[in-house]
């Protein structure tokens, strides 16, 4: 379990932040920063959902789809892995309107970050599906299951268990990448912090609180994924 070092880290940072901040009245920053944090959380949750869906679709299309779908999936994966998340955000936000497609900033943030992480996730999904022993496919054929049924009921549930830890990392990457969304006019946690810093110059307090808030969210993700891993592992053991 890696929870203990994480918890210790959190406590150390939190106390340090408090110690410094308590010189000044740090509480005045909390409501504003919490507003920003809520935006960050929303983008993270939305982005993670988009990422998982995109990754599953892309991986399955790439592995089992007909040729056109396969190409589409490969293009998506390569395009979004080969360019930066920032450029993707700018494309969706500043370039698409030139083609008549105007999206809400929040939708753009969720779509861009979700699709970006989804492209990496597709490789995670593919790896996990490939790692399911071949005997599981063969048993499915011997029971006369159509391929789709075997994939859905036999292969994917086993692949999910292997996917959970790498997805935990990707979700945290997504959380960290949310700091980019201030560049498309969204008042997320990082943006709020900068804004307050520019008007008050209370740099140490503000950024200590910000650090603790980001850390708290990422610890929540880690704990959640651990719990999911435990559930998935229950009663499971590979067939060999």
């Amino acid at each position: 379990m890696q929870l203990r070092p994480l918890a210790i880290c959190a406590i150390v940072f939190f106390t340090a932040g408090l110690a410094v901040a308590s010189f000044a009245n740090f509480r005045e920053f909390i409501p504003g920063l919490l507003q920003g944090a809520w935006i960050t959380v929303q983008i993270t949750i939305g982005g993670c959902i988009v990422a998982v869906v995109a990754a599953l679709l892309a991986a399955i299309a790439r592995m089992y789809g007909p040729a056109p779908l396969r190409w589409l999936a490969v293009s998506y994966i390569e395009l979004f892995r080969g360019t930066s998340a920032l450029v993707q955000l700018f494309w969706l936000f500043f370039v698409l309107p030139h083609f008549g497609i105007v999206l809400e900033p929040m939708s753009v943030a969720i779509a861009a970050l979700g699709l970006n992480v989804g492209a990496y996730g597709a490789e995670v999904v593919r790896g996990a599906i490939t790692a399911v022993p071949r005997g599981q496919w063969e048993a499915s054929v011997a029971l006369n299951m159509p391929r789709k049924l075997a994939l859905r009921r036999i292969i994917l549930p086993q692949a999910f268990a292997a996917m959970i830890p790498p997805w935990g990392n990707l979700f945290i990457e997504l959380l960290k990448a949310t700091a980019l969304v201030s560049l498309i006019t969204i008042s997320d946690l990082a943006f709020k912090a900068q804004q307050m810093n520019q008007t008050t110059f209370r740099t140490v307090e503000i950024f200590s609180i910000v650090l603790v808030m980001y850390l708290a969210i990422s610890i929540l993700i880690t704990v959640g994924m651990r719990a999911l891993e435990t559930v998935a592992a229950r009663g499971m053991a590979r067939g060999r």
Binding site: P133, Q136, A139, I154, P157, Q158, M236, A237, G239, R240
Partner: peptide, 8 residues
């Protein structure tokens, strides 16, 4: 030979 039961 290796059973290939569904482990889940």
């Amino acid at each position: 030979q290796h059973f290939n039961l569904f482990p889940h």
